[in-house]
Design a protein around this nucleic acid. Structure first.
Lengths: 213, 213
DNA sequence: TAGATTGTTAATCGATTAACAATC
DNA sequence: TAGATTGTTAATCGATTAACAATC
């Protein structure tokens, strides 16, 4: 690990490198050059080398990059070696969809429990138990929780975020259409998925594409 | 509408402007200056004026911007005045979650049907019917479909994309962890939501935040 | 060794911010 | 009218691409 601060643009590309290297690994490919990876990923070889060299020199002149080694190194950079415990606020459809996505658990993300306010949804006997929201403090005091997911309706998002923070949760994955960053202490990290905004971007591009004809 | 090509960075900010203006509208705010909006949104006033002026001069010196008018104009830019019909491939959890998100329908996005290959999931009698995947061509020939959603497991993503394209669908909202863009004709627009990558970015930031202490 | 390919510096490109003249 | 605030040009900043010396 070399540099102190790495630009957000670089960070957002790391999981994609990780994915392609994982695929190459599964195909039994042993080594790859930045030019080879460039062709596969449709980014410039220069960008790949620049990005990687934010974290260290993983390649070797003449040889290129060892696929398995680089995959592992990027995993370490992303912190995937440290399993993460997750709780989800909101046992609705989004929450359930997330809990069943197998690719999360494959990378060490373990969903421990749901929390909801709707008594009809509470069921501590499920594989992933659904507890009452009021028991979240008790739960977090007994279990190490790394990530809190906000999958509640928008109007409850801030309240949920504050509950998470009170419980000492330092990372929030937010699916509500609100901007939490300004409302949260500096040592709490937020990653938001704003589905409506993604859909609106698509809508814009539909129009732009039609006009181009 | 002024400029021909507007940068991707600007486009991605439009839905957020739209959202804040909608909120201001609901609060009964009549007008706002770029400085006022800047403070609310935590972006520079300069950026707001630059962004908006890609599409035209919506403001007025001395007065600022009329909230209702600007909200409407951005809606037009995003194409929200034209309702969009959507079908979802994959009646699993993600698909169901999307179908129940009320904020989509509020903005003119109508989900017409699901398509799935699992006989157990097929149910044409539901509010949003679930049809067999094989009937998709028939359906799209009888209904105008603007957006196809890929909510199937990753290994079926490309096949589904090609089916959509064969059916004349020009816009794909992709939730599978694959890169469709290079595999698709130029007149088909893709918007991808890569949840695993979002989660990995969060994981990186957790580590980075801990190291900063 | 010779040459392929990296790591890294330099050049370019694009996006953001600052400044200010235009104007309502 | 005077001055607040836009639209827009100019300056800065950052990210991407190109070039190339280092080296395995």
């Amino acid at each position: 690990m070399a540099n102190e601060f790495v630009s957000k643009a670089v960070i957002k590309r790391l999981p994609r490198y990780y994915r392609y290297l994982g695929e190459l690994m599964n195909e039994g490919v042993e080594k790859i050059s930045s030019a080879g990876l460039s062709e596969k990923m449709h980014v410039t070889a220069s960008q790949i080398r620049q990005d990687l060299n934010n974290f260290g020199g993983f390649g070797q002149q003449r040889y290129g990059y060892n696929v398995k080694n680089l995959h592992n190194e990027i995993g370490l950079i992303l912190g995937l070696d440290q399993p993460k415990n997750i709780i989800i606020a909101g046992a609705g459809n989004i929450g359930k969809a997330l809990s069943k996505a197998s690719d999360f658990s494959q990378h060490g993300f373990n969903i421990l429990a749901f929390f909801d306010t709707d008594p009809a949804k509470i069921d501590p006997e499920k594989t992933i138990p659904v507890y009452d929201m009021s028991s979240i403090r008790d739960f977090t005091s007994k279990n190490k929780v790394d990530i809190g997911v906000i999958a509640v309706p928008g109007k409850y998002a801030f309240k949920t975020a504050h509950t998470f923070i009170e419980c000492g949760i330092k990372a929030i994955w937010n699916f509500a259409l609100v901007d939490l960053d300004p409302a949260v202490p500096k040592d709490v990290v937020i990653e938001s998925v704003h589905l409506s905004e993604s859909l609106m971007t698509l809508s814009y591009n539909i129009k732009a594409s039609e006009e181009k004809k």
